[in-house]
Structures are given as C-alpha cells and as structure tokens.
C-alpha cells in the first residue's frame, strides 16, 4: 500500500497544451486547411454561377441568380463546417498512427485532453473556414439581412454545430482502421445538406425524400442559419437543431472516449 499522493490531473491545462500542439500542426500542414476551405468555395461558385440562374427561377417567388445566392449561402456555410469536421476525422486517424499517441497513453495526463485538443483545434479551424467562405459568399452576391445580434447568434449557433459534429468525427477518425477510411466515413455529412432544404426547398422533392428531408438534422440546422441571416421564419427549427447537436455531441464524445481508451 502506497501512501504517497498521486500528482493531480490537470485536464484544462493539458487540453490547452494539446490545443497548442494541434494548432501548430495545422500551421505546419496548411494544405489540409486550404483543401477544406476550397471544397465549399468551389460548390458556392458552381451553384451561384452555373446552376444559380435556373435554380433561382424555381424558388418560390422566383428571383434568379441573386435570390439563389441568398438561398444557397447558408447551406454552403454549413457545408464548410462539415468539410472541416471531415478534416478532423482525417487528422485524428493520422494522429493515431503516430507513435506519440502511445507515449501520451503511458503518461500521467488527463487522457481526454488528446481528444479535446483535436476538438478545440477543429472548432477554431471551422471558425476560420466559415469566416473565409462567408467572405467569398458576400463577394458573389450573398446579401444577408442580419443585424449584429443575429450575426452573433449565427456565430454561436455554428460553433455549437461544429462542436457536435467535431466530436462525432473524432469518433469516426478513431474508429477508422486507415486514414483513407477516415476520409470516407464523414462523406454522408457532406451529402446530407443536399437531401434537405440546403440547395432547393423540400417542397419540390418526391414524397419519400421530402419526408426524410424534413426529419433529418440538417434541415432544421440550415433553416436556423437561413432564418438568422436572411430573416426567413425559424419557428421551432432552432430548438430541434440544438437538440440534435446536443445528442450528436454526447454520442460522439462517449463513443470517442470509449474508442480512445480501448487497447490497441
């Protein structure tokens, strides 16, 4: 029996240390962040300049390219968040192949900090990516009606969404056996906005898909962002969206923690 007191764990200090590590890694490997931002920008340009004229004409009330830019921008902003979290899955999977993770496991540190470092880093990365993509959207004709308070609410809401999906993707990254697998696993997150109200109103879809579209998490998330930025009705979308986020964050956190603590 040892009476010697065990050094206390410092989860917050350790998380800050791991966050610094992840931010440094992102700066040393900028092509990853650039790729993550390029994807939604390409989609934005494609949807506004190539498809926007026709799709805009089909919106309730019509309006053409300018109206469609306003309609699609919230979906593209959300796509930016999903693109970032896909990067999280990849960088977590890559990290797990590095010997330093085994070292962390043999150290007397708050274990979860390895994961929280990734989560916080990715949320900051998402904030950066969303800022860049929103800037591009403004340049190509996105004209939000939001007041400063609504902008702030949008930012807060998107951070909550990013936080939830980052935890899910940390788990997906840990669950993947290879880095390739990790880059494919979150692909549904990129596609789901298409099967919702992201790119066209759900009214225009066949019944079965419309039913799916109305009940999947991305529709209330997009409706909330659109409502905050464009002044369209939000109704109860915000609460449904936040409930989804809480559930996804909790699932992702518990799953990731379990996966990280399993023996390799």
């Amino acid at each position: 029996m040892s009476t010697q007191a065990l050094p206390r764990l410092h989860p917050i200090h350790d998380s800050a240390t791991m966050l610094r590590r992840n931010l440094k890694r992102m700066l040393r490997y900028p092509s990853m962040t650039i790729t993550l931002i390029a994807m939604p920008v390409v989609f934005l340009l494609l949807f506004v300049y190539i498809l926007g004229g026709t799709l805009g004409a089909g919106l309730p009330g019509g309006g053409g390219r300018a109206a469609y830019a306003n309609y699609v921008a919230p979906a593209i902003i959300l796509m930016t968040v999903m693109s970032t979290v896909q990067g999280t899955a990849i960088s977590v999977a890559m990290d797990m192949t590095e010997g330093i993770i085994a070292r962390f496991r043999t150290m007397h540190i708050a274990r979860v900090s390895v994961l929280t470092g990734h989560v916080l880093g990715s949320v900051l990365q998402a904030i950066f990516a969303v800022t860049v993509v929103t800037g591009v959207a403004l340049l190509v004709g996105f004209r939000p009606t939001a007041n400063p308070l609504e902008w702030l609410a949008t930012a807060g809401f998107l951070v909550a969404v990013a936080f939830a999906f980052v935890w899910l993707c940390v788990a997906l990254g840990l669950a993947s056996k290879t880095v390739e697998g990790a880059s494919n696993a979150p692909l549904p997150l990129i596609l789901l906005p298409f099967l919702g109200s992201g790119f066209v109103p759900t009214d225009s879809m066949p019944t079965a898909i419309r039913w799916f579209a109305e009940y999947q998490p991305f529709t209330p998330i997009i409706e909330t962002v659109r409502g905050l930025l464009m002044g369209t009705p939000i109704n109860n979308s915000a609460w449904i969206a936040l409930t989804w986020c809480a559930a996804i964050a909790l699932t992702g956190y518990l799953w990731a923690k379990r996966l990280f603590n399993r023996e390799s």
């Binding site: 590590r21 440094k24 890694r25 590095e98 330093i100 085994a102 043999t106």
Partner: peptide, 14 residues
C-alpha cells in the same frame, strides 16, 4: 515511468 518504444514517439511536425 517513461517509455521509449521501438517506433518513434515524437511529433514529426513539431
């Protein structure tokens, strides 16, 4: 304890 394994446990990007 301290462990130095067979596979390099350093962060190569740092």
């Amino acid at each position: 304890i301290g462990v130095t394994g067979q596979f390099s446990a350093v962060d190569k990007l740092l």
